Every structure is written in structure tokens, then in C-alpha cells.
Simulated assay, not measured.
Amino acid sequence: MLVPRPGAGELLVAVDACGVCRTDLHVAAGELPPHRPDVVPGHEVVGHVLELGDGAQGFRVGDRVGVAWLRETCGRCRFCVRGDENLCPESRYTGWDADGGYADFTTVRADYAYRLPDGYTDAELAPLLCAGIIGYRALRRADLPPGGRLGVYGFGASAHLTAQVALAEGARVHVLTRSPRAQELALRLGATSAGGAYDAPPEPLDAAVLFAPVGDLVPVALRALDRGGTLAVAGIYLSDIPALNYERDLFQERTVRSVTANTRQDGRELLAFAEKHHLTVAVSPYPMDRASDALADLAADRVNGAAVLRP
């Protein structure tokens, strides 16, 4: 392939590992509208810096670097100014608006690149750059109280990392997923219980995060919440939500919140957490030329943990 040139303020990055995210699947399947024809997917990129564009600061050639979903924001709108850059109307995304990491090389603005914690392999770090970050934001949006009871619906790449963050912070975690292998992984990681996606957890929940892109699970999760509980919907895509019954699903101050992308601060906080509390990252490796197989396995729920491409 042609080696891209870094623009002003950008880094040229040689890709050492790239996670396979469900968002890539939604883009490939047309569930998310294409932003650019024939764009190269991939936004969980771990690599090393090959070249600095004019004015790029903060990194040197050879540094290990992370490239994530949020690629660029305007920095001027009311959302950016107040710290909510994830809501910027002019935001652009790696692997959607610009070529991503399913390739040998990619570029990233230096001020949107991440320094990475030690103690992890490249393949282990890659899922942290979206699955980890968006799960971290979803957990914060769910308003889990200290020592609270968390429900996790779906248990793939993002959920298995988010559960570990909650466990490290003292929560009781109940995992609800259709996959027996994922249930086993959840229990190995320390979950209090693991059951079917439509099962009732063994105790009322203070908070829940929905990772599965299944709208039918929204009323299921809401009914599992205790009074005042919050459900955060973590995905960028969700199938249609069935009609909610106010008294049964929402009354007693239950709350539903969406999660939209992430801020760079979310990323910095998650990576700092991962440096302090070593996370177990379940990785299913694929060679880069088998990216289509990785996406197919992800679509069929055959991936336990996170699929990661390696050159």
C-alpha cells in the first residue's frame, strides 16, 4: 500500500495491532451511514511513530502510541468549550471519516493520540482504545454508587473491561448475556453472577449498562433496576426499542441515558486506570489479512473477549 504522508500537526503511525470493534461491523453492514466511500476501518490502533508532520508535538519517532475513535473536533463550539467535545457537530472519526488501522500505516493528529501504559502487549492495549474507553464513559453515565450493584447486558470486548473497572471500584457485578462462554469469562473475572440476557438478576440493580445492540433489552434492563436506578446504553447503534410501560419500566425515577463517543479526557482516565489496576484483556488474534473473518466471527458472537488484528 502507499504510505500516507502526515499532515501538519499529525503523526505517521506504523500499525502494530488494531482491535476489531462492533462499530466497524455496523459501518460495514450499512447500519451506520458511510461518511466516506471505501474508507479503511479500524479505530483501536496501537503502533509506533514513524514520522512527525510539521508542528506535531508531544511525541518522538519510535514512541508507542494509541489511535482511537475520536479523530478531530472543532474546539470552538459550545460543546467543546464546556468539555463535551464528544457532542461536537463537526467531530470526525477514525475509520469512518478517515482511514483507520486495518492497514500497515495510519495517521493521527498528535493532540488526539494517546500515550499508552506499560505492562500490556500491543494486542492487549488495542481494545482499550475504544472498547475500554466507551465502556468507561458508559459506566460513569450509569451513575453507579460506591459499592453498588451493576448489571452488564452483553459481555464482549467493551463489557468485559468495564466490568473489571466496576469490580476494582468495589461494585457487585451481574452479567446478563446469551453466550455460555461469555458467562464463564464473567465469573472468572469476578462477577457475582452470570445469566441469560433476558433473565432477572438475583438482586435489584443500582445501575446497568447495555452493550448488546438489542433494543428489546431496554425494557428488560429497566425492570431490573431498583428505584432511582440508571440504564446507560453504550452502543453507537441499537435496534428499535419496543414500547415502554411507564409504570412498570420508568416510574420511581428510573433513568435511561445514551452514550455518544467519548472525550479525550475519558481516554486519559481509562488508560491511567489501566496502568494502576491491571486489566485482564481477553484477546482473539487474527492476521491482518483475515479482517473479514474477524468481522464475521464478531457478527456471529464467536469472539470471546476482543478480536485483534496483527500485521
Rank of each mutant, 00 (worst) to 15 (best):
V214F: 03
T73D: 08
P201R: 07
N245A: 14
P213F: 00
G101T: 09
A212I: 11
G135A: 13
E269H: 08
A221S: 10
S239R: 10
T162I: 13
D24A: 05
R60K: 15
G66M: 09
V65Q: 03
L270R: 00
F251A: 14
G62E: 12
A138L: 12
D84A: 14
L187P: 11
L139F: 03
C74V: 05
A14V: 10
R149P: 13
L128E: 06
F273A: 03
R254Y: 01
V67F: 01
F251I: 12
V303S: 01
S292Q: 15
A159I: 10
L271Y: 03
E51P: 10
R82L: 12
W96C: 11
H278D: 08
F59M: 06
L139G: 04
F105A: 05
A207F: 01
A291H: 07
A8N: 04
L271W: 04
G19F: 00
A261D: 05
A131Q: 01
F79W: 12
A307M: 11
G95Y: 01
R149Y: 07
G55K: 07
L50R: 13
L161G: 00
D301I: 01
F105W: 14
A157Q: 02
P287Q: 02
P180K: 00
V303M: 00
R149H: 12
D63R: 05
V165E: 12
P213T: 02
T106G: 13
V13S: 01
Y120N: 08
V45Y: 00
C21R: 03
D199E: 15
L238K: 03
E169N: 13
H43S: 12
V308P: 06
P6F: 01
G30P: 12
G229P: 11
V283M: 07
E124L: 08
Y114G: 00
A294N: 01
R268V: 10
R178C: 08
G19P: 09
Q252G: 04
S258C: 12
A138S: 15
M1P: 15
I236C: 11
V45C: 13
R302K: 14
D143V: 14
D199G: 09
W96P: 03
L217W: 00
E51N: 06
G19W: 02
A224L: 13
G100D: 10
